[in-house]
Structure formats: C-alpha cells, structure tokens
Computed example of a mutant assay.
Amino acid sequence: MLTLARDTAVEVQSLVQVLDSCAGSLRCHSMILFQDLLVSTTLSADDTVDLFTFAVMRLTSKALSSDTSSWSYLRKGPGSSEISSRSNLAPVGSIDSLHSRNGNNMHHVIRPLQNDKWTKGKDGFLITDIWGLETGGSPDSAIPTIWLQQTQERMYLLAYQHKSLTLLLLMPTNAIVNGDLSISAVKQQVIEDASLRILKIEENISRGWGGENAYHIKGYRYLVVDNDTKVSRSSPSGKVTTLAKESLLALNKLREEVDSEKSRAKGQEKDMEICIRAKNNVWVIARVTRGKELYMALEKGSDTLLDTTDAVGRFSNRYCSGAFLMD
C-alpha cells in the first residue's frame, strides 16, 4: 500500500466518505489506486486482492496504455466441460460464458482480462464491451458486476480515472434492479462531489511520488510481508537485480529455512530470526514476528553480525514502525 503524507491521507479519507455517500443511503465499497499502487480500500482482504489484481492488469492508466498481450480465453474446437458456464465478471442476466456461434466449432468464452477492451470515456469513467453484448440502448446493462466473497453480494463496478489516479466504486446490483438507484445518477454525483478532491489528491501524490524507485532505501535490498493484511512491500525490481548471484542463492536458502520452521510450527505463530553469510560475505537476514516477515540483504562485506543486526533495527524503526525489533 502506498505510504501517504498525513495531509494527503486525510484528503483520501474524506474522498472515501464522499464516494460512499454518492449512492445515498446504500452501502457501497471503494478502492483507490495511484498508478499500480493501492491507496485505499474498504473491501475485505480477500476481495481487495482479487479486485486490485484485476485493476492493475486492466484498469489503471498504465494498463490502458499498455501494448502487452493478455491471457487468451478464446478456444477453438469443442468446448471443455471444465470451463465455468458463467463468469464472476459479467452483467446480471447476461449471456453464458460459453456458447456456440452459428453452429460452428468456434466457442466464445468471456474474457475479463482481454486487452484493449477498456477505454476512458469523455466523462472520466472507464467503459467496456468485454462481452460483446447488445445493450439495447440501456447504459446500465453493460456495466460489469463482481461478486464479493466477504458479503456474498453482486456489485456493479464503476471505474473513474484522472491521470494516474483510478477510483473503483462498487454498488449493490439489487438496488439498480429494484429502481432504487440509477448508475447515471451516481456517475453525475461522483463528478459533482468528488472531482475536485480527486484532482487535488492526484496532484499531491504525484508531487511527492518518487517514481518506480520510490521505495528504494539506500544500502538495503528488502521484502516486507504482512500476512494479516496481505500487503507486501519491497525494493524496486531494478535494484534487486543488482544483487550478486551468491546473494540471491543465500536469500533462496533463507526462505527455505523460514518455510521449514513454519512447517515445524504447524500453523502456530513463532517469532524467529535467521542470519546467513553468503560466500561473497553478504549478510542475508529473515525476521518473522506477529504475522509479519522481513527478508533483507546487506551487501557490505565488512559488516559484522552486530552491525547487521543494528542496521535491521534501524530499518524496522524508521520504515516499519518498529515491527521487527527483537527482544
């Protein structure tokens, strides 16, 4: 999750409240991303992971401008019985995900990850015709829906984008079906009530954003994993590739040691610290405590184990709120 300055974090929280009120008294959910980084979410951990993954692949500004090829779900020949007959990302009451075209052997499978199927409209909202449906003139019938695991609800997915900031708003489909809510009215409400806040937040985050190396910390190559919130943070990939082969092999061995200790603990939480000195004199360290894991490589061959332990402590205090300090 993106680390924000205090004033920007307050602005984001205010925006979340505005988004929640755009559908009146109905319970909505939202997610905010800056580029491909999570800024805010009101979803459960599992639903956050699912929607965030999809958003990064197809909804962010970077994804919309990407020319990379996507996974293909278009099959030739007889349809497989193992393919689900309906997608979790499909309009309510829409076509089955697998059907025959004109009696030939070409079968169409819904492809929510298909490239070039999402575009940005003039009003800032993202639009799609992933399913190739005839909407009959209804603007609501082609709005994607998703299924939330936590609440067991089907929700409409609205995506709004301003430069590098992407907002996802989820609304219960039954409210639309029952006539309690209009998607076009919600869109208008977002534009009227939230657009200025969105513009300001995007400017503030962009001003303080350090680019792809924003999470680089000089002298450290690290990976932090929070198993409770299912959030991870690491050195930029470009910095990780500067590690020597011996360091990477030592890190791999370190992960194996941690996994082995976890297996022996049989699911019970166990605090641990493991240090290995690689053949090139690099120290690699793992600390596991209270559901959080830290893996680190320090490529100063002259450092002693005490120096290394102190360096990890400084990192924990400054960047992890002291989460990895060991007694």
Rank of each mutant, 00 (worst) to 15 (best):
S184W: 14
V18T: 07
T229Y: 09
L133E: 09
V231N: 06
L4P: 01
R207S: 05
R27K: 15
R287V: 08
W209I: 09
E299R: 05
D47I: 09
S316E: 06
D7Q: 08
T3N: 11
K253H: 15
I205D: 00
E273V: 07
Y220L: 00
L294N: 00
T41H: 10
S61E: 11
A323R: 03
S14A: 11
T119A: 08
D20I: 14
Q150Y: 14
N227V: 10
L325E: 02
L251F: 08
A244I: 12
L165E: 01
R86H: 12
D116M: 12
N227H: 11
D228C: 09
I127C: 08
I143S: 01
V92E: 01
E256C: 15
N104P: 01
L157K: 00
N88Q: 04
G24M: 10
F52G: 00
A90E: 00
V312I: 13
V284R: 03
K163R: 13
Y215T: 07
D96Y: 09
S80F: 06
K187M: 15
F324E: 00
S81I: 08
L306N: 07
S100F: 14
A323Q: 01
G124A: 09
S25Q: 15
S321H: 07
S70Y: 13
T304P: 04
P112W: 11
A55M: 15
L113E: 06
K245C: 07
Y222Q: 05
S87K: 00
Q17D: 09
L4R: 00
L59C: 03
G219P: 01
A142R: 09
I201R: 02
V284E: 02
E203G: 06
S66T: 07
N204M: 12
S65A: 12
P91I: 04
S61Q: 12
S97H: 02
R27F: 15
G103M: 12
L33S: 05
C22V: 12
K279A: 10
L196D: 04
L167G: 08
P172R: 01
S94C: 13
T308W: 06
S66E: 04
P172F: 07
R318S: 14
M272K: 07
T242G: 05
K163H: 12
T304H: 02
S72E: 12
W283R: 05
